[in-house]
């Protein structure tokens, strides 16, 4: 196999995207939960019946992550062969 396999360059980039997604996920999750959620419960506002901190952090957070993963899968990830014998196909 030649040095600097082209597939590894793509694989490394996609691994970093995974790390970036998780980092974004943590910031979103933490940010909404512990700012809006730190008020005393009497001052909470509610969205669709849920406390605002929970709605934004957990429910909207899940929707946002699913959308981001969709965008990454659709537009960023590259198809590639895993087996050597099919390496020249692409």
């Amino acid at each position: 196999m030649p040095k600097g396999d082209w597939r590894f360059r793509i694989a490394h980039r996609e691994a970093l995207i995974g790390v970036a997604l998780a980092a974004f996920n943590i910031i979103w999750w933490y940010g909404f939960a512990y700012t809006l959620g730190s008020k005393p419960p009497e001052e909470y506002t509610y969205i669709l019946g849920f406390p605002a901190w929970f709605f934004w952090s957990c429910i909207a957070g899940l929707v946002v992550m699913i959308s981001l993963v969709y965008l990454v899968v659709k537009f960023v990830l590259k198809d590639m062969p895993f087996d050597e014998e099919r390496r020249d196909d692409l």
Binding site: F8, A11, E14, A15, L21, A22, N25, L62, V69
Partner: peptide
């Protein structure tokens, strides 16, 4: 735990 859905496959990934 939501992270497990995408993180494992992306990080271990194609390499």
């Amino acid at each position: 735990q939501v992270a497990t859905g995408y993180f494992i496959l992306l990080v271990l990934g194609k390499k």
